[in-house]
Simulated assay, not measured.
Amino acid sequence: MAFPAKYPSLNETTLSDGAKAILERIIRVAFPHRNFPDGAYQRMRDKIVAEAESSTWFRVVLTQGLLTLDAKLADGEHFLELPQDRALAVLRSVQDLEFFGFIRRTTVLNLYADPVVLQVLGYEGESFSQGGYLHRGFDDLDWLPKARIEEAGEPLVETGPLPYQVRTESGTTAPGTPAAISGGSSAAAAAGPGPQSGVAADGRTQQPGAVQ
Protein backbone atom coordinates (compact mmCIF):
# COMPACT_ATOMS: atom_id res chain seq x y z
CA MET A 1 0.00 0.00 0.00
CA ALA A 2 1.40 3.35 -0.98
CA PHE A 3 1.15 6.25 1.42
CA PRO A 4 1.07 9.78 0.02
CA ALA A 5 3.75 12.17 1.20
CA LYS A 6 2.77 14.80 3.74
CA TYR A 7 3.82 17.40 1.20
CA PRO A 8 2.63 16.31 -2.27
CA SER A 9 5.22 18.50 -3.96
CA LEU A 10 7.88 16.07 -2.71
CA ASN A 11 6.56 13.56 -5.22
CA GLU A 12 7.42 15.82 -8.13
CA THR A 13 10.05 14.46 -10.51
CA THR A 14 9.46 16.74 -13.48
CA LEU A 15 9.99 20.47 -13.76
CA SER A 16 6.93 22.67 -13.94
CA ASP A 17 6.92 25.98 -15.78
CA GLY A 18 7.34 27.71 -12.43
CA ALA A 19 10.38 25.59 -11.61
CA LYS A 20 11.90 26.38 -14.98
CA ALA A 21 11.42 30.09 -14.32
CA ILE A 22 13.22 29.69 -10.98
CA LEU A 23 16.02 27.81 -12.74
CA GLU A 24 16.49 30.63 -15.23
CA ARG A 25 16.56 33.19 -12.40
CA ILE A 26 19.22 31.15 -10.61
CA ILE A 27 21.41 31.21 -13.73
CA ARG A 28 20.95 34.98 -14.11
CA VAL A 29 21.77 35.66 -10.46
CA ALA A 30 24.76 33.29 -10.32
CA PHE A 31 26.17 34.42 -13.69
CA PRO A 32 25.16 38.09 -14.05
CA HIS A 33 26.04 39.71 -17.39
CA ARG A 34 24.05 42.79 -18.30
CA ASN A 35 25.02 42.58 -21.97
CA PHE A 36 24.03 38.92 -22.40
CA PRO A 37 20.75 38.57 -24.32
CA ASP A 38 17.79 36.80 -22.73
CA GLY A 39 18.07 33.99 -25.28
CA ALA A 40 21.44 32.92 -23.90
CA TYR A 41 20.00 32.36 -20.42
CA GLN A 42 16.92 30.64 -21.81
CA ARG A 43 19.03 28.24 -23.87
CA MET A 44 21.14 27.56 -20.79
CA ARG A 45 17.99 26.76 -18.82
CA ASP A 46 16.84 24.33 -21.51
CA LYS A 47 20.30 22.74 -21.60
CA ILE A 48 20.20 22.04 -17.86
CA VAL A 49 16.70 20.57 -18.15
CA ALA A 50 17.87 18.32 -21.00
CA GLU A 51 20.92 17.18 -19.02
CA ALA A 52 18.74 16.38 -16.03
CA GLU A 53 16.33 14.35 -18.18
CA SER A 54 19.15 11.96 -19.07
CA SER A 55 19.59 10.96 -15.41
CA THR A 56 16.81 10.05 -13.01
CA TRP A 57 18.98 11.01 -10.07
CA PHE A 58 19.80 14.51 -11.31
CA ARG A 59 16.21 15.05 -12.47
CA VAL A 60 14.90 14.34 -8.97
CA VAL A 61 17.70 16.32 -7.30
CA LEU A 62 17.12 19.33 -9.53
CA THR A 63 13.34 19.24 -9.19
CA GLN A 64 13.38 18.97 -5.42
CA GLY A 65 16.15 21.51 -5.06
CA LEU A 66 14.23 24.16 -6.97
CA LEU A 67 11.16 23.49 -4.85
CA THR A 68 13.12 24.15 -1.65
CA LEU A 69 14.17 27.69 -2.54
CA ASP A 70 10.81 29.26 -1.71
CA ALA A 71 10.66 27.13 1.46
CA LYS A 72 13.76 28.94 2.74
CA LEU A 73 12.00 32.32 2.50
CA ALA A 74 9.74 33.83 5.12
CA ASP A 75 6.39 35.61 5.01
CA GLY A 76 5.32 34.08 1.75
CA GLU A 77 8.20 35.52 -0.29
CA HIS A 78 9.09 33.99 -3.64
CA PHE A 79 12.55 33.62 -5.10
CA LEU A 80 11.45 35.09 -8.41
CA GLU A 81 10.41 38.32 -6.69
CA LEU A 82 13.57 38.89 -4.64
CA PRO A 83 15.97 41.72 -5.52
CA GLN A 84 19.36 40.71 -6.85
CA ASP A 85 21.28 40.99 -3.57
CA ARG A 86 18.78 38.91 -1.58
CA ALA A 87 18.49 36.31 -4.33
CA LEU A 88 22.29 35.99 -4.32
CA ALA A 89 22.25 35.52 -0.53
CA VAL A 90 19.76 32.68 -0.93
CA LEU A 91 21.99 30.99 -3.50
CA ARG A 92 24.98 31.32 -1.19
CA SER A 93 22.99 29.47 1.47
CA VAL A 94 22.46 26.51 -0.87
CA GLN A 95 25.78 26.59 -2.72
CA ASP A 96 26.91 23.29 -1.19
CA LEU A 97 23.74 21.40 -2.11
CA GLU A 98 23.94 18.94 -4.98
CA PHE A 99 21.23 20.51 -7.12
CA PHE A 100 23.05 23.85 -7.16
CA GLY A 101 26.37 22.17 -7.91
CA PHE A 102 24.71 20.49 -10.90
CA ILE A 103 23.40 23.86 -12.14
CA ARG A 104 26.75 25.57 -11.63
CA ARG A 105 28.83 22.87 -13.37
CA THR A 106 26.53 22.64 -16.35
CA THR A 107 26.37 26.42 -16.75
CA VAL A 108 30.13 26.90 -16.56
CA LEU A 109 30.66 24.31 -19.28
CA ASN A 110 27.97 25.56 -21.65
CA LEU A 111 26.98 29.22 -21.14
CA TYR A 112 30.29 30.59 -22.42
CA ALA A 113 30.21 28.28 -25.42
CA ASP A 114 26.96 29.76 -26.69
CA PRO A 115 27.63 31.31 -30.15
CA VAL A 116 25.78 34.53 -29.27
CA VAL A 117 27.68 34.84 -25.99
CA LEU A 118 30.97 34.38 -27.84
CA GLN A 119 30.05 37.27 -30.14
CA VAL A 120 29.18 39.47 -27.18
CA LEU A 121 32.52 38.65 -25.57
CA GLY A 122 34.36 39.40 -28.82
CA TYR A 123 35.68 35.86 -29.36
CA GLU A 124 35.55 34.73 -32.98
CA GLY A 125 35.75 31.03 -32.18
CA GLU A 126 38.14 28.39 -33.41
CA SER A 127 40.15 29.30 -36.51
CA PHE A 128 40.53 26.02 -38.38
CA SER A 129 37.18 26.19 -40.17
CA GLN A 130 37.93 29.81 -41.14
CA GLY A 131 41.35 29.23 -42.65
CA GLY A 132 43.45 29.99 -39.59
CA TYR A 133 44.40 33.30 -38.01
CA LEU A 134 47.26 34.35 -40.31
CA HIS A 135 45.15 36.39 -42.71
CA ARG A 136 42.42 37.29 -40.23
CA GLY A 137 44.15 39.98 -38.18
CA PHE A 138 46.28 37.72 -36.02
CA ASP A 139 49.01 40.39 -35.69
CA ASP A 140 46.75 43.43 -35.45
CA LEU A 141 47.98 45.34 -32.41
CA ASP A 142 46.42 48.73 -33.04
CA TRP A 143 45.76 49.15 -29.33
CA LEU A 144 49.52 49.17 -28.53
CA PRO A 145 51.73 52.25 -29.09
CA LYS A 146 54.76 51.96 -31.35
CA ALA A 147 58.05 51.32 -29.60
CA ARG A 148 59.85 54.55 -28.71
CA ILE A 149 63.23 55.29 -27.09
CA GLU A 150 64.90 58.32 -25.53
CA GLU A 151 68.67 58.82 -25.71
CA ALA A 152 70.55 61.40 -23.60
CA GLY A 153 67.91 64.10 -23.73
CA GLU A 154 67.18 63.60 -27.43
CA PRO A 155 63.52 63.69 -28.47
CA LEU A 156 61.61 60.43 -28.60
CA VAL A 157 62.09 58.63 -31.88
CA GLU A 158 60.36 55.61 -33.30
CA THR A 159 62.50 52.53 -33.65
CA GLY A 160 62.42 49.76 -36.18
CA PRO A 161 64.02 46.33 -36.44
CA LEU A 162 67.82 46.30 -36.38
CA PRO A 163 69.65 44.54 -39.24
CA TYR A 164 72.09 42.77 -36.96
CA GLN A 165 73.72 42.90 -33.54
CA VAL A 166 77.35 42.80 -32.39
CA ARG A 167 78.20 40.72 -29.35
CA THR A 168 80.78 42.29 -27.03
CA GLU A 169 82.43 41.14 -23.83
CA SER A 170 79.85 43.08 -21.81
CA GLY A 171 76.82 41.98 -23.78
CA THR A 172 75.04 42.60 -27.07
CA THR A 173 75.05 46.11 -28.51
CA ALA A 174 73.14 47.46 -31.46
CA PRO A 175 74.98 48.47 -34.65
CA GLY A 176 75.94 52.10 -34.73
CA THR A 177 76.69 52.41 -31.00
CA PRO A 178 80.22 53.46 -30.00
CA ALA A 179 81.01 49.97 -28.73
CA ALA A 180 80.03 48.52 -32.08
CA ILE A 181 82.01 50.86 -34.36
CA SER A 182 85.02 51.80 -32.23
CA GLY A 183 88.17 50.67 -34.00
CA GLY A 184 89.93 49.91 -30.71
CA SER A 185 87.08 48.09 -29.01
CA SER A 186 87.09 44.41 -28.28
CA ALA A 187 83.87 44.18 -30.33
CA ALA A 188 85.61 45.36 -33.49
CA ALA A 189 88.58 43.11 -32.83
CA ALA A 190 86.40 40.11 -32.19
CA ALA A 191 84.18 40.72 -35.18
CA GLY A 192 87.09 41.32 -37.56
CA PRO A 193 86.97 43.42 -40.72
CA GLY A 194 83.71 43.50 -42.57
CA PRO A 195 80.31 45.12 -42.45
CA GLN A 196 79.36 43.66 -39.08
CA SER A 197 82.41 45.18 -37.34
CA GLY A 198 81.31 48.70 -38.26
CA VAL A 199 84.46 49.23 -40.43
CA ALA A 200 84.52 48.62 -44.18
CA ALA A 201 87.32 46.68 -45.82
CA ASP A 202 88.97 49.93 -47.06
CA GLY A 203 89.04 51.42 -43.55
CA ARG A 204 86.04 53.71 -43.98
CA THR A 205 83.40 53.80 -41.28
CA GLN A 206 80.32 51.99 -42.53
CA GLN A 207 76.86 53.12 -41.46
CA PRO A 208 74.56 50.39 -40.21
CA GLY A 209 72.56 48.88 -43.00
CA ALA A 210 74.58 50.72 -45.72
CA VAL A 211 75.39 48.85 -48.91
CA GLN A 212 78.92 49.21 -50.22
Rank of each mutant, 00 (worst) to 15 (best):
A89C: 06
P161S: 14
A74L: 03
A5F: 13
A89N: 03
D202T: 00
E151C: 05
G176S: 09
H78R: 13
A30Q: 13
V166I: 11
Y112T: 04
F100N: 11
E169L: 05
F102H: 03
A19C: 03
A188R: 12
E169F: 10
P83E: 02
D75S: 12
G153M: 04
W57K: 14
A200T: 05
A201M: 07
I103G: 00
S170G: 12
F3N: 02
L162A: 13
L67R: 02
G18R: 02
L62H: 11
L15V: 01
R43S: 08
E158W: 07
S127V: 14
E150L: 12
W57M: 15
R59Q: 11
L73C: 06
N11V: 07
V94N: 05
G132I: 11
R25S: 08
N35D: 14
Q165R: 10
E151Q: 14
A187K: 02
V61S: 11
A188Q: 14
K20G: 01
R43G: 00
L73I: 07
R204N: 06
Q196S: 09
S54F: 10
A113N: 12
R43Q: 03
V29T: 01
G122L: 04
M1V: 13
T56A: 15
D46I: 00
A191G: 01
R204P: 10
